[in-house]
């Protein structure tokens, strides 16, 4: 049975205030210039309820940019303890594209051998989703990737219906918020009808720009390994690594040691890394296995549309559009896909 509740907009601030007292409360805030970021808030007035995808995806809370794996002490041999650092938090107003991104990361890090740092931290985070009532901008392809509507991955899911939010209660963790805060009311049939109406309206707004079925994509990539398109975007690429950093599903990392000043103790950390970096696939002998920018660009696209489909039966592009928005060289995911489709005459 689906459980729906109602939260009056006037009660949102109380919700934020109650929850932010118990743990960190992260929500999208405006940084100006139509840019947003998830940050810690204590009041609803700081929250940007209407926002386009944040600069960094919420993956930064699940696998932080810098993350301690081990604390070591070499005063007497190679002594260590493995640790996870975490914060209990509520992640509020996560769009459906980012929920899909978190689901991708969940799959990767729960694959064997399991990554406990990720898995422990993930369960300290309560996720409250927020529906997009409109398309954010021309860069998103969420409808094509089937991420314009909620597909799970949240504890509560909010849909803004004007004076109130209709809230889907998906987990016990979500239900606990309903019970503890006592701010929610039961939804009636008319509320649910309103939600249906919005979803109906969304079907006309959120359209597949490509005119082909998403399931044709892996096959398209099968045929496109040698396409000229990779050279074209490779020539334009600065290898700045913006696209991988902002991507909600890029999870490559580097592992390194950070010494304390006593030179005996320190920690082993992992840091976000990027397959677009010059040295990413270099071995210590000096050989670099993806030296050409075009090879690195191809690799990134295949890691979104082909390889994870082989491995996990899932696309690792959520359609959020961040990579296109952030690219100084204006390399567009949408255009690249369009060109590949055109080149291969896929229908």
């Amino acid at each position: 049975m689906q459980i729906y509740k109602i939260l009056k907009k006037s009660n949102l601030d109380s919700l934020v205030s109650i929850l932010s007292k118990k743990q960190k409360f992260m929500a999208p805030v405006s940084k100006g210039l139509n840019k947003f970021a998830f940050e810690s808030v204590t009041s609803s007035k700081d929250i940007a309820l209407k926002y386009i995808p944040t600069i960094l995806a919420p993956k930064k809370y699940f696998m932080p940019q810098y993350e301690t794996l081990i604390e070591y002490d070499t005063k007497e041999g190679q002594n260590m303890k493995a640790v996870v650092e975490y914060e209990n938090m509520v992640l509020f107003a996560v769009h459906t594209c980012d929920l899909a991104g978190i689901q991708c990361l969940n799959i990767v890090f729960s694959d064997r051998p399991k990554d406990l740092n990720y898995l422990v931290r993930k369960n300290k985070i309560t996720i409250i989703g927020l529906e997009c009532n409109e398309v954010c901008d021309e860069y998103s392809t969420c409808a094509f990737m089937d991420n314009d509507l909620p597909n799970g991955g949240y504890d509560l899911f909010f849909t803004d219906l004007g004076e109130y939010f209709i809230v889907h209660v998906n987990t016990q963790m979500g239900d606990a918020i309903i019970n503890d805060t006592k701010l929610f009311e039961d939804a009636t049939v008319s509320h649910i009808n309103e939600l249906e109406k919005l979803r109906e309206k969304k079907r006309k707004l959120f359209i597949n720009q490509f005119g082909i079925d998403r399931q044709k994509i892996p096959e398209l990539f099968d045929k496109s390994k040698e396409s000229q398109i990779w050279d074209d975007i490779g020539n334009r690429c600065l290898s700045c690594g913006n696209c991988t950093n902002v991507c909600p599903t890029c999870y490559c990392f580097d592992v390194m040691d950070v010494q304390n000043l006593d030179l005996k103790t320190g920690k082993r950390i992992r840091v976000w890394d990027s397959c677009q970096n010059e040295t990413f696939a270099k071995v210590s002998g000096g050989e670099s296995f993806r030296e050409a920018r075009s090879d690195r660009k191809r690799h990134r696209f295949y890691r979104k549309f082909k390889y994870p489909v082989n491995r996990y039966s899932r696309f690792f592009c959520t359609g959020c559009g961040r990579c296109t928005r952030t690219c100084m060289a204006k390399i567009s995911l949408l255009e690249t896909l369009e060109l590949l489709i055109k080149e291969n005459k896929v229908k």
Partner: peptide, 19 residues
């Protein structure tokens, strides 16, 4: 094949060739 296996766990991406 020689690649830079940084984590050994099939995750960090450095030793990846295609999938």
């Amino acid at each position: 094949l020689e690649r830079h296996m940084k984590c050994g766990l099939g995750r960090c991406g450095h030793c990846q060739i295609e999938d």
